[in-house]
Nucleic acid binder design. Structure first.
Lengths: 194, 194
DNA sequence: TCCTAATTAGCACGGTTGTATTAAAACGAA
DNA sequence: TTCGTTTTAATACAACCGTGCTAATTAGGA
């Protein structure tokens, strides 16, 4: 009898160990040996759950998106005003707490690594652009977007701002702390809303 | 007699070969062997010019900044209106042509790599923030910044937008082509100027 | 209890990495 | 030419990489 439940839980544990290794040592340090050690497993044990390193990589990337999506869905359930809702969703993406920080940093490391692989890897799409489109369309439908704003341009601008702030918060956290990130997001949303 | 001139020219050639390798294969592929092959040199020859790989890394990073700085200084000599000048300078940073593309991409690869090194490397500062501060202060001094704009916030926003657009242009060039980047930059500058 | 499948540990293999070393080649000045 | 320095080539080495393989261990159902 396979212990399906424990099996999947263990895979998540390993994927999270991989996150921590990437956070600490970068993609270059994300070797199967380092990941196994971080997860408290032997090489053979890790290999039992993930046949190859690429399998683990794809699984760990999927898990990042899954976690973020779940948190965003929880935010969407909350009774907030349109503008508050938009800000709240963005703050679940951009690195302002332990969750968002590790997810965003690991995500960037993944994307940068996968880009330079000759063989294609089944990497999930970036959901941030899609989310940005939805948020701004929502604001416009609510009549909150200033008439001077062009939707397409605002999507590109907010999308860029989100990832730009994320990069800066990751690479220079002592200069751009979570409060500054939040303040800048709110400042920008205010600037495009009536 | 040391052939100083050729020596330094050769070092630049090697550094540029490293850029191309990073552009093509990423930081993981930037091995001394790959770089030597790209430069058309043997391992021993490369090692003659750069005692260690880190020496080459630091030299190649410095060269990125040097090239970008020179181009920006050239732009500053041109007789342009304040707003045109600001846009022109930003377009020398963000990936809109072969030069800016390779420099920005290599720069990000460098920064991401260096971040995860226990030992400190003599990596040059990011000049983009400094440049952004100057540009916006200049706009304000010229009385072109809207009165509703807060300088500190605008610096953070433009800085984020520049690197965010750069990331997107690098990671997804078929979606965000140079024209879109330029259009978005101009749109943003227009939105904060009278 | 036993038995079978799930799980783990450990090692070996071929390949790649950065770097050190050493000898050969190229070249300029006398 | 001849000498001395600069430059190149080639190899060796230790460390690390991903992965395949096999034996030991564990655990749950009959």
């Amino acid at each position: 009898m396979p212990k399906i439940v424990n099996h999947d839980e263990r895979k998540n544990t390993i994927a999270e160990a991989m996150w921590r290794v990437i956070l600490d040592k970068g993609m270059e340090g994300a070797t199967v040996r380092n990941i196994a050690e971080e997860a408290g497993l032997s090489l053979g044990a890790l290999r039992y759950y993930f046949k190859t390193q690429d399998d683990l990589l794809v699984y760990a990337m999927d898990l990042v998106q899954e976690r973020a999506t779940k948190r965003i869905e929880a935010v969407l359930q909350q009774p907030l005003s349109p503008k508050e809702l938009v800000v709240a969703v963005i703050l679940e993406i951009v690195p302002v707490n332990a969750n968002t920080k590790i997810e965003m940093e690991v995500w960037f490391a993944f994307i940068a690594y996968v880009k330079h692989r000759s063989d294609t890897l089944d990497v999930p799409d970036d959901q941030i652009l899609e989310m940005t489109q939805r948020l701004l369309t929502f604001l416009q439908e609510q009549g909150l977007l200033k008439s001077t704003c062009q939707l397409e341009m605002e999507i590109e601008r907010l999308y860029g701002l989100i990832d730009g702030l994320a990069i800066h918060a990751i690479l220079n956290p002592e200069r751009l702390d979570p409060e500054h990130v939040q303040k800048t997001i709110i400042y920008h949303i205010d600037s495009i809303c009536c």
